[in-house]
Simulated assay, not measured.
Amino acid sequence: MSEHDSLSHARDIAPLILLIDDVPDDLRWLTALLRPDYRMAFAHNGHAGLHKAQALRPDLILLDVRLPDMDGFSVCRLLKADPLTQAAPVLFLSACSQPQERVDGLAVGAVDFISKPFYPEEARARVRVHLELAAQRAASEATTVAARAEGAERHPDRLLVQEATRYIRAHLAELPPVPELARRLGLHEKRLLALFRDHLGQTVSGFISEERLGHGARLLSETTMSVQDIAQTVGFTNPGNFATAFRHRHGQSPLAYRTAAREQLPPCTA
């Protein structure tokens, strides 16, 4: 595979959809419908959905209006209030056809509704349209930022590094060994190692470790996720390994780091 092909392959990472629903039949139906084209993540109640959204930063969220612990409108309101999750379009799943419910959903930040019972072509079309709109907004913002950066380096090697680091950040929980990672990016292992050494001054493994611990630190300070869930989200096989690596990097345990981070937050004002 050529380096041009490797860039195209990395850009083709399927969008991630977070499905927040506690109805087994809905989960099975939507998974069968969407998994061929998208990556899927799941949560069975509102609180778990908020944590998953913070950790995974999905491209789109499908949210049931009726959840066992809190209503979907409250979940949507919290998603839109959080800088970590506010950019993801939210589509409500609802068996109710009352106009007021749709108005309430749009008022808290949702972009659309998918009615139950589901119609396959309609559901796929709504998901596709809102992913495309979100991608267009993101591309427009990225173009604006790029236009402001004078003399930005566009060397092919740097583009390869950018795509490789983007892939790593998008797959922290499930990264393969470095030789397989290089193959997925369309590169030889030695080529990938040389790119990271020359452009980032790091080994690939060192970069992955820094990203995992950095993302773990952000989740500790910005969410209420458990240490075990954070460890799994950033790619550690067990929380003990995560705690050991975190202490070595930050000089304190994950729980101590979380406590210190919260003490430094500005007080809430009425």
Rank of each mutant, 00 (worst) to 15 (best):
H4S: 10
A14E: 07
P15Q: 12
P15Y: 08
L18H: 07
P24D: 08
D26R: 01
R28C: 09
L30V: 13
R35A: 14
P36M: 09
D37K: 15
A41W: 05
G46L: 11
L50I: 12
L50C: 03
H51R: 14
A53D: 06
A53R: 09
Q54K: 13
A55Q: 15
D59F: 04
I61E: 03
D69W: 01
G72M: 05
C76L: 05
C76V: 08
R77A: 15
P83F: 11
T85D: 09
E101A: 08
R102A: 13
L106D: 03
G109H: 04
A110T: 03
S115M: 12
P117M: 08
Y119V: 14
P120M: 09
R126P: 03
R128D: 14
S140D: 06
A142M: 11
V145S: 11
H155F: 02
R158Y: 04
L160R: 14
V161W: 09
V161M: 12
Q162Y: 00
T165D: 01
L172R: 07
L172M: 07
E174D: 15
E174V: 10
P176K: 11
V178G: 05
P179T: 13
A182N: 02
R183Y: 05
R184M: 14
G186Y: 06
L195K: 03
D198W: 01
D198R: 14
D198H: 11
S209A: 15
G216I: 01
R218S: 11
L220F: 02
L220H: 00
T224Q: 12
S226M: 01
F246S: 08
H248A: 15
Q252N: 04
Q252F: 10
Y257N: 01
R258A: 14
T259C: 02
A260K: 14
R262Y: 05
E263M: 11
C268Q: 01
A270G: 00
